[in-house]
Design a protein around this nucleic acid. Structure first.
Lengths: 225, 225
DNA sequence: ATATCGAATGAATGTTCATTCTATCGCGCT
DNA sequence: AGCGCGATAGAATGAACATTCATTCGATAT
């Protein structure tokens, strides 16, 4: 009975302290790694930056790979949350899809460095960690897949189109805003990017009879500088 | 006169020897790095694999970064060559575009590991090297951009569409076949992938009056498993 | 034959870094 | 008050690695 759910308050505050510090470490590590890359950032450097001793780092994380995994999942969870939040409550499948894509692009834009880090360094993760990251990415796609399926069921979207593939295309294109920012940013701003990519994808899916319902989404082709 | 163009035959064979060895080193390094990642491959390991002494590696390359740059540009050059070769001689802009995309996807599929390496590790390159890689990527896009511009000039493609952006979308989607192979390969095979992505892009660009000319390219929506 | 010169070698070097270890600390309990 | 235990600290450890360098080798020119 000394253990269990009713652990003393002391335990809890201490544990909360640790959780806080752990989170701080994750954020600092994310910033450093985003700037210099995983391999160029030493545990010592992370310790110094966070005012935490090297020893404590190993209290919070198994090893450096474990820290990287925590950093990446932390980043991806942020992305994953914005997307369904933005889609929630929108009845029209096409508008829902558009809202989700828009939110995802904006989240990626806000944390561009972190996104690059996540996709670049996920390959240095051991097998299991990589699988986890991939699963998170699939989970992210889910709401988009659902919206497309919904649109197909409602007769708004071409039922012949492979929805899960197109949904992942949208994920790829959103990520490309971060990964290929050096190129795209020279062509359009974020708003233009989102509008253009949405138009590309939707033009290939919305059945002719329903096109008139989405003139704003389908006609928009971004001005290119 | 001891120097100059007429250098002795001995000089020339020796130089050729070196060039050969250099190329072998690049290929072996590419294979190792593709499997384990740049940072996990030591110069010693590369030396051992190629039957070349460590010291010689530094005869051929400034340092490890320089070797990486050589590996990446070597990979990208292969990709860049296939693409215009496949497009050459096709008059119809849409068909030319399709042929280019197809060739690019196939090249990426053939050297999938190398592609992942190139795009993942280009970030560890110093500033100048990174620029060079980006330039190579832009050069690759060029024939696609031209084909789209041609299509627009001919009245086949919607002139409102931002061609250079869409062209880079195609590059991104082609690369995604390699980078996100773990996901896409579960949905379609390469042929289906190419057909589907082409259909997506072309449906958003070909003007209605010209659609009937490309039923094969526009209608094809891949079977999804 | 032999002198010359660049290419090749691989052991040695010095540094960097992840991880461990031991000593200290301070919170929460009695 | 003071005890005990987990949390923290940071020096120590040892392995890995990029790079260097003193030396050897081999081809060509004389």
């Amino acid at each position: 009975m000394s253990l269990g759910a009713a652990s003393s308050t002391g335990r809890r505050t201490t544990t909360a302290r640790m959780a806080d510090r752990r989170q701080q470490v994750i954020e600092a590590a994310a910033a450093l790694m985003a700037r210099d890359g995983f391999h160029a950032v030493s545990m010592q450097a992370i310790a110094q930056r966070t005012q935490v001793s090297v020893g404590s780092l190993y209290q919070y994380f198994e090893d450096k790979d474990d820290l990287l995994l925590a950093v990446i999942t932390s980043v991806l969870e942020v992305f994953g949350k914005d997307l369904p939040a933005a889609m929630d409550g929108i009845a029209d499948p096409v508008r829902r899809l558009a809202a989700g894509f828009d939110a995802y692009c904006r989240a990626l834009d806000r944390h561009r460095d972190a996104a690059v880090l996540a996709y670049r360094e996920s390959r240095t993760l051991p097998r299991q960690g990589r699988r986890l990251v991939q699963q998170l990415e699939i989970d992210t796609t889910r709401p988009l897949v659902d919206a497309i399926a919904d649109g197909q069921a409602t007769g708004i979207l071409d039922p012949e189109v492979p929805g899960s593939l197109i949904a992942f295309d949208m994920v790829v294109l959103a990520q490309a805003w971060a990964l290929k920012h050096w190129h795209f940013a020279a062509l359009v701003d974020l708003d233009g990017y989102v509008a253009t990519q949405l138009a590309v994808v939707l033009r290939s899916m919305v059945v002719p009879r329903r096109r008139s319902a989405y003139p704003d989404l389908l006609r928009r082709a971004a001005r290119v500088s």
